[in-house]
């Protein structure tokens, strides 16, 4: 464990130095990180302003939903985004060979080698939106379930991104990791706008509703604690599945490049 902590510290130092080389781009990345989330906030707010409520979601619930997703997105982008993109190039260029021979867990290395620190800028407006939209009274159990649910959302988003990125071992040039960007819009939506078939898919097959929608409902005292707990259980299942998927995919890796 100590070994991995030291490794993370080294990675952090290296990434800070890298990002500081291009300071202007770092600042722009910081600002642009807000872009897509604020765009979705603008969209949902405009729609809700014209129809008063979207299903059972009012304006302030939308703030909590988008704010929660911004926090999840900020942390996952900081920790994993660059890495997910690079998995495709490791496979295409054959450099995955070198990673597999390093004295380190291969899933850890391909998932954590690079940090995108500018993405953490999303946390500030994200928390701000959650605080603005949160409904009183303050209830400890709901808040704890919200924090747990959000952490579970981060784990689920990592697992989904990782499985998509790892599938490039079969679809070498497909850039499957890019699909996550499309799915971001799905995750940012209130669960009840989906038709029944899609809602079932995004709850039980690819559990995207647990990433932001379920935690946001919990904080607004509208969700069932059991559903929030189910989200945490699903996060564990998703992580185990992602790990099994990685080793399964590695069996098909045939060192295409180098």
């Amino acid at each position: 464990m100590r070994y991995y902590a030291d490794l993370m510290l080294g990675i952090l130092r290296n990434c800070v130095a890298r990002e500081m080389m291009f300071r202007a781009s770092f600042v722009m990345s910081l600002i642009s990180g807000y872009g897509w989330s604020l765009v979705m906030l603008l969209f949902l707010s405009t729609v809700v302003a014209r129809v008063q409520a979207l299903g059972s979601w009012e304006q302030r619930d939308i703030y909590v939903l988008v704010g929660t997703f911004m926090c999840v997105q900020g942390i996952t982008q900081c920790l994993f985004e660059t890495n997910m993109w690079r998995i495709g190039s490791y496979v295409r260029e054959g450099t995955l060979d070198f990673i597999l021979t390093k004295p380190v867990d291969s899933q850890f290395f391909v998932s954590a080698r690079y940090l995108r620190l500018s993405a953490l800028g999303l946390l500030l407006p994200g928390v701000g939106l959650v605080v603005t939209g949160a409904r009183g009274p303050f209830i400890w159990s709901d808040t704890l379930l919200y924090v747990g649910g959000t952490l579970a959302g981060i784990a689920i988003l990592y697992a989904v991104s990782f499985v998509l990125a790892a599938s490039t071992i079969w679809f070498v040039r497909a850039e499957m990791g890019g699909l996550v960007y499309g799915l971001f819009d799905v995750m940012r939506l209130p669960a009840d706008v989906y038709p029944k078939a899609l809602r079932i898919t995004f709850t039980y097959v690819v559990p995207l509703v647990f990433i932001a929608s379920v935690p946001a409902q919990t904080l607004q005292h509208r969700g069932s604690p059991l559903v929030a707990l189910a989200g945490m259980g699903l996060a564990v299942v998703a992580l185990v599945f992602a790990r099994a998927f990685w080793f399964f995919a590695l069996k098909s890796y045939s060192s295409t490049g180098s």
Partner: peptide, 16 residues
């Protein structure tokens, strides 16, 4: 990736 946002927005408008 280009189409998913369009579909998502259609679903929101259907609800609205």
């Amino acid at each position: 990736v280009d189409f998913i946002p369009s579909v998502v927005m259609i679903l929101v408008w259907q609800a609205a």
